[in-house]
Structures are given as C-alpha cells and as structure tokens.
Write a protein that binds this DNA or RNA. Structure first.
Lengths: 304, 304
DNA sequence: AGCTTCTATAACCTGCCGGAATGGATGTGG
DNA sequence: CCACATCCATTCCGGCAGGTTATAGAAGCT
C-alpha cells in the first residue's frame, strides 16, 4: 500500500485542472508523461480515478475520495519531512532562515541579534534563494522560516507576519527617457518591455509585472533568476522592472536609476513559517525577535 | 517534498532491526539494495538518518524524529488508499470480504444472508487469498474485511472480532504410524517433518508450526501456499501439519487422516477490519451480521 | 470539410534500481 | 595471535521505469 507522493500531487493537479494537457503545462512536463503517471497510479491502486472524455477528465467516485483525502496526507507528509530536516539542523543549534533577494534589509542584523539574545548558543543561518523557488526553501523544508515578499505561490500554507510595507519603484536604464521624471505613473510603463521572473513563480511574477494594474498582458524583454542577472538585464536595456523602494539602497548599480511609481499597490515584506504543530522553540524565538524589532525608518529616498 | 512511502517503510524496518543485514532478511531483499535505498532516502532529504558503526546502525536525532512520525504518516497513507479502493467497489454496491483457506466455514452463507437482509441491493464478494498474504487483502486494501485465524502478522493494526474457537488437529498421511492413535499429544509430533507456510507469513507460520510449544526449531519437509498444494504435500508424505478441526470437514481427501492434538492452544477464527474512521455503513452491517450469526454447532468429529 | 482540442500510442533514450560478488573494517574465539 | 564471523560499502551488470518528441485517433466547432 505504498505510493510515491509525487504521483498524488500530479493526480491532484490533474483533478484541479480537469485536463491532462493543462496540468502538464502547469507542472512543466509533457502531456504523455502525465498520461503515464496517471495510468501508473491507477494501475497501482487497481482503481480508475478519472473517466476520460473528449473534453477532459472527470473524477470517478473513487477519484473524488482520493482527491478529498490526499491533501491531508500530503500536508502531513510535508510536515513530517520538514520536522525531520529541522531536527537535523537543530541538533547543531542552527536555525535556518531563507530569504529572497530584496527581502533582507537593514533590520535583519537587529533581528538576528535579538534572536541570539533569546536563544543563547544558537546560530542563524541565512540562506539566499533564487527566484525560481519563491518560498526560499520553505516548501522543501530547507529552512525553518523565510523572509519573503507577498504575494508568493502557496502562501496560504504558511503562517505570515507582515514586517514592513513599502512602495514599489521602477528600475530603469540610466538612459531611459522616463528617468528624467521624478515620479512616474504606472500607466506610463504599461507598454514598456519588462524583465521578469521565471514563469513557474506564478503569482509572484505577476505581482512584479503588476498584471492586476494592466489592461493588456505585459511584454517580456528578459527572464532572470537572480539579482545580478536582473540588474545586468536592466542596465543592458533588455527591459525595466518594478522593485521595492529598499532596492534603491541595496541594489544600486551604475547605469540604473530608480524612480517611485504611482498608481500601484505597495509591497509587503513578511516573515513566513510552516503551519506545523508544535512549533520548535527556537522558531518561536525568531518570530518574537521579528515582531519586537522595528522596521528601518522610512528613509526618504530622493531621486538621484 | 515527496517520498516514496516504500522508502519510509524500509527505513522503519532498518530502524527496528538496527541492522541493514537483518532488515534485508526481513524484507526479502539483498543487503546492498537496502544500503542504496537508505542512501537514496538520506540524499533525498539531505539528512543523515543513521550513524553507521561496525555493529549496526544507530538512529541520529533526525532519524529518531522520522522514526517517531513516519508510522502515523504511513497509516494515514494506508487509510487514504484503502478508502479510495473501497469507494470504487462500493460505488458498485459490492462489499469485498477476504478469507484464507479454512477461515470460511458453515456459518459463512448465513452471515452473507443476514448481511444481504441488512443491506438490500448489496453484494458480498468473497475473495480467497493464498497464505503468502496472511491478511487476505486487508493490508493492500483489496478487501473491506477478512475472515482470518489468529494470530496473523500486523494484527494489531486491525479491529478484531472473534467468531469461533476450535481445537487444532493434525493432518497425517493415511499410512503414518501415529494415525493409529485416536488422540495425539503434541510432544509426539515434535520431531516430525512439517509442511509449512512461506516464511514471510511470520507469526502465522510459527503458530501453525506450534513453535511456542517446542523446545527445538521445527523440521520443514515442504512449503506450500495454497490448500491443494498443502493437502497434496501431506498425502505425498513430505510432512504433516496442524489444522483447525473444521479442516476435517472442509479438506477431506483420500490418503489424509486428521487426529485431535492435545497440549496445544486452540485456534481462533475472527473477523478483521481496518481501524479507519469513519467505517463505511455496509461494513458496519457486515460486522453486525457476523456478530448475530451463531457459530456452527461444535460437531463431534470422530476419528475415522 | 477543415480546424482545434483533447487523450492515447509509438519509438527512443537515459538513468535508476536491484542482485551477485567482493572488499574492508572490526570484534571474537580457539 | 591468527582465522573467522559479522557488518556495511562498492562494483559491475542487466532490466525496466519514466521522460521526450512525434503522431495517431476521436470529437466538437465554425
């Protein structure tokens, strides 16, 4: 009575999409691969999970049972594996904190200092993730908590504590015509080429392309995975990009100019950690440290 | 964050045995296969689960966490897959009941009749299993309930309701010297060759070899998997075997004589079903049917 | 009819997984 | 003190699982 949980996740995706083809797109595999995975699962259980039809896949009764119960199984699985990894690092008195570029800021050293006071003998290991993992290691249990910007995919699966809110600016090549303005309405940017995150980052990518403030889909000039590539792409003129205000302090670079953008929502920086019970004590201490450390003063960045 | 649950079961076996070699024997695979499975699991989690030493394997802290939490995960997994399979058959209004040879008896038709009265429109599908699956399909979710004889491996994982208790007899070749006696003390059988069930049946095999009533290990003359092979082996003189009294009615065969055996415990026939919640209504009805159907009268089998 | 949109199948290739045999390290008993 | 037993790791090899691309087949839409 064993399964590879991977097959269950695939199954759930197919069930949600109601189509092999769409599920294959979402999972970044070919459609025949999903056909085989599903047949494998069905053969393994000796149960037909979908009825195939011309216009997609419909769950059978048995499929509905599995679709209903599998999520709890998978989340328990995540929790168990996560706690196993956590035990391994906690045995060495290390708390692992992931962050995405631009999510660590001036307050971070203070938070760590506070934590160290609360948990003497413990160390914080800060792990930077590339944008291709929007959870910065939370999803795989690589870290105990993460500093992230909202929104990110699967964020509902985590506890969130907002640490700071800051306006979004735009990063422009120094030579860009709009760099002459001190403030730019988003509507002026809508037709520009953008430097985007990889497609698999879903909502996160959309947020930084501000698709919810657009009429038409954005035009993508480049896709990057890391801050350096990102800065380089902008400086090269492949496109422009939105960024939190603090990028103006952490990601200055010759050839790049930042300008405040009006007409779009601000960015929320938060601490995220898994909804597992019980919470390991050092994690609780870190959460406390975050809550008791004030955000950096709202510096008045002046256009350079 | 996915795992093949197979790896988790392997891991637990290694943890219990404290040794790759012993675990490999118990799982009927080679020792290098387990070495690789374990390395695979450790690599997948990026966590060292055991510290290797000359005299076996010891769990690390992380390994202890996993060993503690994995059983709950696996039992949830079993439950989910089981309920999926159950839904598939219940959609067709079929209740699947497994049984091992000699575990169905005169009362079975009455039980089915009672069940059919309680659940109009439903059918009972009786599935006979070979001895190589001592749970008669419960373990794999092939059946909703099973008629079994105690003890059987992993019986603690199921709800048990004892239906009947009967003495154990011995099946002898017709020409066997002991066939001349009307009653045989077990001590007289201890040095005989026995026809046994396959080794993987564990406690069940031991029970029918009556190892708990022996000083020395039993001598095995043949291993069989099914009633017919079993009868044939005894008739051929490959060995003798213990059997429940009712075998004298269900498994008569020229060349084979049954005799009551004294000095060993009786055999318990029971209904077993998974400890899952909630219980599907037809299963509840079947349990009721079993409880309300009296066992067959204690026939006085006379030695022939 | 022709196009689109599904899923299933075929052919191919890569890499994983398991078994047998072997090696190396380490206690153990004569 | 040496031969042996006991474990785990390594190597080699065969088989197949699982992915990709290309294509077929069924069915609705215009």
């Amino acid at each position: 009575m064993d399964v590879d949980t991977q097959l269950l996740r695939t199954f759930l995706t197919i069930a949600e999409e109601g189509s092999l083809t769409r599920a294959a797109e979402r999972l970044y595999v070919s459609q025949p691969a999903l056909t085989k995975q599903l047949r494998r699962l069905e053969a393994h259980l000796s149960v037909r999970l979908f009825t195939r039809s011309r216009s997609g896949m419909t769950l059978t009764e048995a499929g509905q049972t599995l679709a209903t119960r599998a999520p709890a199984l998978l989340s328990l699985c995540d929790d168990v594996l996560r706690s196993t990894k956590a035990t391994a690092s906690h045995a060495a008195r290390v708390l692992r904190v992931g962050f995405l570029a631009s999510a660590a800021n001036e307050a971070t050293p203070d938070i760590i200092a506070t934590f160290t006071r609360l948990c003497p003998g413990w160390q914080v290991e800060m792990r930077q993730s590339s944008w291709s993992d929007p959870t910065a290691g939370l999803a795989t249990g690589e870290v105990d908590a993460a500093l992230l910007r909202l929104p990110f995919p699967t964020q509902d699966a985590y506890n969130l504590h907002i640490l700071q809110t800051e306006p979004r600016w735009v990063a422009l090549p120094h030579t860009h015509p709009l760099a002459a303005h001190t403030t730019i309405p988003f509507s002026a940017l809508e037709d520009e080429l953008f430097v985007a995150a990889p497609p698999e980052t879903g909502a996160w990518r959309d947020y930084w392309l501000a698709t919810e403030h657009r009429e038409k889909p954005p035009k993508i000039g480049a896709v990057t995975d890391q801050p350096d590539e990102w800065l380089q792409a902008i400086a090269n003129g492949y496109g422009i990009a939105l960024a939190p205000e603090s990028a103006t302090r952490f990601y200055t670079r010759p050839g790049i100019t930042y300008r405040p953008v009006t007409g779009i929502s601000p960015s929320h920086l938060c601490l995220a950690w898994p909804k597992s019970t019980p919470e390991p004590p050092p994690l609780t201490a870190f959460i406390t440290a975050c809550q008791s450390t004030p955000p950096p003063p709202a510096t008045l960045n002046r256009p350079q």
